[in-house]
Amino acid sequence: MQEYVRVALVFCGIISIFIFPTWVPMLCVIALSLRHRAWEAILIGVLIDLTWLPSGNVIHALPIFTLLSLVIVWGFEPLRAQFLLSE
């Protein structure tokens, strides 16, 4: 059941990148990171930036959502390690 939820969250997160405002896929990233060591959450952040980030110098073209997803996934690691029983 948990795997089905994970797959559904990943699918919704990826599709919503192209259709919905950015907070929708980021909600999926947070939901995934709370429960799993989800590399898919990092993938969602990367896809947001690869799709929408304009080219430019480093300061103005910082991949904010990639960095944000990395922070969320790794930031929840102590929480997951302490309280979760899977992965």
Binding site: H36, R37, W39, I42, V73, E77, A81, Q82, L84, E87
Partner: peptide, 16 residues
């Protein structure tokens, strides 16, 4: 409470 098999998931995150 720590899962002894947590290493694989963490490795996947590092690779990602």
């Amino acid at each position: 409470y720590r899962d002894p098999h947590a290493g694989a998931g963490r490795r996947r995150l590092v690779i990602a």
